[in-house]
Design a protein around this nucleic acid. Structure first.
Lengths: 340, 340
DNA sequence: TTGTAAGCGTTATCAG
DNA sequence: CTGATAACGCTTACAA
C-alpha cells in the first residue's frame, strides 16, 4: 500500500540506504544508480513519509504562517487574505505546505508558536502579526528555526534583529499627497482609521506631512480625520464634517474602503469627483474598480512581499545565507484611475 | 532542550512507556501516576514530537483544507475566506492544525491531495472544492482517511457517498422570492453570475421558480439575467436592461456584490429602494451593511457549516461513528435590512 | 499497574 | 560507490 524506500530498494536490488541517498541527491551515488532509483520511485509514486523524515532530519516541509484574526475588520481581512493566497502560491512552488494559524489561542491565549516549536511541526515561521510576544520571538530564535516578519511592523521586538519585508507606508503616503498637490490641490484632508494601534497609519501620515512640507503647504491638525475603517464612515463624512468638505479640494484616504464609501456618497450628493474634490486611496483593494469614478490608489505590493518573504524563508530553511538578515521595505506605487 | 517522554520518565522515576500511556490516558495506569506524570509534563512544557508520533500511530494532528483559488473572483474569495477563518477557529479548539492548500498545483496540475496522502502528512481532508477528481476521491477513500465535503457540491463524485455539509441554496432562493412576493412584488427579476459552472446558482434559481409557481406567478425566461459576479455589472444594469427595469418591482440578486452595485446605481439614478424596486441579495457578505439602504439578504450559514464539518472530521479522525455518513443541508435564513 | 523491547520510515555513521 | 546498522521519539505487544 504505502510505498517506502525499502520497497524501492527491493525492486532496485540495492539497500534502502542507497535509495535514501539517491533520492536525496547525495554526491556519493553514481548517476546511473540515481537515475534508476529515481525512475523506480516515481513509477511507484513514492513520497517520503513526512513523519519519519522529520523525526530523523527535522525537516517537516511545513511553514507556519502566523496571523491575527480580525473578525470584525472587513477591510483588513480583505487585504490579509489576498496576501495569504499569494503566500500559498509561492510556498507551493517550493514544495512547502502552509500551516495557517492564529498566533494565540482565541480563548486560552496559549501560544501556538510555542506549541508548534515543541511539537517540531514546522521548518520556519512567517509572521504576519504585529503583536507576537517577545517571549515567542525569543523562543523561535532559541529553537534555531528561521523566521521572517511580513507586512506587519512588530510591536514587541526590535525589528532590526529580524528578517523582514514591509510595505513602504511612508513613501506611499508621500506619493499620494504629492500627486494631489501636483494636480493643484492646496487643502488636503488626511483620513485614516481610528485604530488604537496604528504604526502603519502613522507612517502614512508622516508621508503626507512630508509632502506638504516639501511644497510649502501648511500642515493642519484639523485636516487629520480619524474615523472607523468602514465604508459607512467614509460615506457619512458628508454628515460628520460637512463644512470642512466645502473648503477642501483633495482627500487622502488611508484605506480604500473609506474612500469607497465617500465616493458613493459624493455621487449621491452631486459632488463631482475629481472636479470638486480629488480623492486618492491606499491598498488597492479589490473594491477599487467598483466605484464610480474608479478609485486612484496606492497599490500595496502584496505579490512582491509574499514572493520575497517565501523565497527568504525557504532559503533560510535550506541554510543558505544565514549569516546576515535580509530587511526590505518594498515600494508601493501609485495607480491612477479616475478619482484624481 | 527539546523535552521527550524519556526526560519526563527520568524525572518521574518511571519508564518512558508509562509516561506515554499516562499522557495518552491509558486506562491501565493508576490515576495517581497519571496525575503526577501530567503535572511533570506540563511543568516541563512537554509536547509530543509530531513526527515521531505520526510515524508510529499515524496521527499527525493536521487536517488538510483543500480549496480552489479564485484569483480573479473577488466575490467568491470573500466568502470562502470567511469560511476558512471559521474553520481555523474550530480546528484550533480541537487542537488540530490546518494545512491550507490548493487541490492542484497551479502550474503542473499535480495533485496535492495525492501527495499529502503519500507523505502521510494529515489525518483527514476537508474539501472546499467542487472539482476534485474522481481519482483523488478514490485515493482518499482507499487510504482510509476521513473526508468531509464542505460548502461545494462535488462535480466528479457521487455526493451520496460522502460526508457533506452544504448550504441550502434551493430554500435560500425560495425564501428570498417568497419574501418579495409577500411584500407585493409581482414582476421579479432573478440576477445571477454567468459562471460556466453553477450548480449553486441553478439551485437558487430553482427555489426562485418554485416560489413563483406556488404563488401562481408566471416564470419568465427573460426575467432571468446572467451577468458577471461583480459590483460593476450590478451597477450597470441600468444601462444593460433599462427598459426591463422600468417594468419590474423586485429583484432577487443571487450574490450580494451584484446587488450592492445595483443599489449604488439606484441611488445615483434617483430610483428609490425599496419603494420602486425591492431588492434582496444572497450570501450576507460583509459588504451588506455598506449599502444605503442596507441590503436584505439570505445569510449563508458559514459558522454552522464550519462548525459541523470540523466536528465531524474530528469525530471521524477519532474513529467515532464511522459506520454511517453524515449528510446535512444547512438552512440559510433571511436577514431583513432596508432594501426590501 | 508497570517495565522491556520491538518497530514505524527515515538519515547518518561506519565499514568495506 | 554501496551496505549494515544504529538512532530519532513514540506506541504497543508481551512479560512481570
Amino acid at each position: 500500500m504505502k510505498v517506502t524506500i525499502k520497497d524501492i530498494a527491493a525492486v532496485a536490488g540495492v539497500s534502502h540506504s542507497t535509495v535514501s541517498r539517491a533520492l536525496n541527491d547525495s554526491p556519493q551515488i553514481s548517476q546511473a544508480t540515481k537515475d534508476k532509483i529515481k525512475d523506480i520511485a516515481s513509477s511507484m509514486n513514492f513520497e517520503f513519509n513526512s513523519g519519519a523524515r522529520s523525526l530523523k532530519s527535522n525537516k517537516t516541509g511545513n511553514i507556519a504562517v502566523v496571523y491575527e484574526a480580525y473578525y470584525d475588520q472587513f477591510g483588513s481581512s480583505l487585504y490579509i487574505n489576498q496576501l495569504f493566497m499569494e503566500l500559498r502560491h509561492y510556498l507551493e512552488r517550493m514544495d512547502m505546505d502552509a500551516i495557517l494559524l492564529e498566533g494565540y489561542h482565541p480563548e486560552t491565549g496559549a501560544s501556538n508558536i510555542d506549541r508548534l516549536l515543541r511539537q517540531q511541526k514546522v521548518d520556519g515561521f512567517l509572521i504576519v502579526h504585529n503583536n507576537v510576544t517577545k517571549k515567542d520571538y525569543n523562543s523561535i530564535i532559541e529553537s534555531g528555526l528561521p523566521m521572517v516578519q511580513l507586512h506587519m511592523y512588530p510591536k514587541n521586538y526590535n525589528i532590526n534583529q529580524l528578517n523582514y519585508f514591509l510595505p513602504d507606508n511612508f513613501t506611499g503616503g508621500k506619493t499620494a499627497t504629492e500627486k494631489l498637490i501636483e494636480l493643484g490641490c492646496k487643502k488636503i484632508l488626511s483620513v485614516y482609521p481610528d485604530d488604537v494601534y496604528s504604526y502603519e497609519y502613522n507612517q502614512r501620515t508622516k508621508g503626507y506631512k512630508n509632502a506638504l512640507e516639501n511644497s510649502g503647504i501648511e500642515f493642519r491638525d484639523d485636516y487629520c480625520i480619524a474615523i472607523q475603517c468602514t465604508y459607512n464612515s467614509g460615506y457619512n463624512l458628508f454628515n460628520t464634517i460637512p463644512e470642512l468638505l466645502k473648503t477642501i479640494d483633495g482627500i487622502f484616504f488611508q484605506t480604500d474602503i473609506q474612500a469607497f464609501g465617500f465616493l458613493s456618497a459624493a455621487k449621491v450628493r452631486g459632488v463631482s469627483i475629481p472636479e470638486s474634490i480629488k480623492v486618492i486611496g491606499f491598498d488597492d483593494a479589490p473594491v477599487c474598480d467598483s466605484s464610480i469614478p474608479q478609485l486612484s490608489t496606492i497599490h500595496q505590493p502584496r505579490k512582491e512581499l509574499a514572493e520575497r518573504a517565501c523565497r527568504r524563508i525557504i532559503e533560510l530553511v535550506n541554510k543558505q545565507n544565514t549569516d546576515s538578515l535580509v530587511q526590505e521595505i518594498i515600494p508601493s506605487r501609485l495607480i491612477m484611475r479616475g478619482s484624481c
